[in-house]
Amino acid sequence: MATREAVENCISRCENAIHSAREQYMEGIREENYGYYDFSAPLKELEDAYNELCKLAISANSQQRERLHRMRLQIQQLQNQIILQEHEPIM
């Protein structure tokens, strides 16, 4: 069973990853007119957080799994936004 502290630490790291990735995403959108912006670093950070969530969810109880699942959905949503932005043609 996952400890409360482990879940809280994981959630905190994921929130930090989301915040950082969101800032880089917004910077990339602002710089879009100047050329291609590389989103690989924020995507890697989000993927690492996602993988950590998945590992922790295996040993979590149902209430912890629900919190981790909600965080995982936030990560996936931001990943999708970044990927779609990355592949939009620049006009």
Rank of each mutant, 00 (worst) to 15 (best):
H87G: 06
L84N: 07
H19I: 02
E32G: 11
Y50Q: 09
A60G: 10
S20I: 01
E27F: 06
A2H: 02
Y34D: 12
L53V: 09
N61V: 08
A6L: 11
N61K: 06
L43A: 00
Q79D: 04
I90R: 13
N9E: 14
E52M: 09
S40H: 06
H69N: 06
Q24E: 10
E88Q: 14
E86N: 12
H87E: 09
Q81L: 14
E86D: 14
R4Q: 13
Y25F: 15
A60C: 14
P89V: 08
L84H: 05
A6N: 11
Q63E: 10
Q79E: 15
E5L: 14
E23S: 05
R22D: 08
S12I: 01
A49I: 03
M1W: 03
P89W: 06
L73W: 02
I11N: 00
Y36A: 03
N80T: 14
A6S: 15
I90M: 05
L43W: 02
E27V: 08
D48V: 09
A60P: 07
E23I: 02
N51H: 13
E32R: 15
M71L: 09
H69D: 03
Q76Y: 08
E5N: 09
D48T: 11
R72Q: 07
I90Y: 00
Q85W: 00
Y37Q: 06
E52T: 12
E23H: 04
E23D: 08
Q24A: 12
N16K: 12
E88S: 08
L43N: 01
C14G: 10
F39H: 07
R70P: 00
I82A: 03
K55P: 00
I58A: 10
A41I: 03
E47R: 08
I82W: 04
A6G: 05
A60N: 07
E88N: 09
C54H: 11
Y37F: 15
C10T: 15
H69R: 12
N9Y: 03
N80L: 15
Y34Q: 13
R4E: 15
I90E: 08
C54W: 09
I29D: 04
H87R: 12
I29W: 06
I18Y: 02
Q63H: 01
E88Y: 07
E15H: 13
N9H: 08
R30S: 12
R65S: 10
E45K: 09
N33I: 13
N33H: 12
Q63I: 04
Q85T: 05
E88T: 09
C54E: 14
Y34K: 15
L53M: 13
S20L: 07
K44C: 10
Y37V: 14
G35A: 07
I83M: 15
Y34G: 11
L56A: 08
L73H: 06
S12V: 02
K44E: 12
C10F: 01
Y36E: 10
A6D: 13
R30L: 13
Q64D: 07
S12W: 05
R70F: 05
L43C: 02
N33T: 12
Y36T: 06
Q74M: 06
S20W: 09
Q79W: 00
I75D: 01
E32F: 07
S59W: 08
A17K: 00
A21W: 03
Y36H: 11
E32S: 12
Q79T: 11
I75T: 05
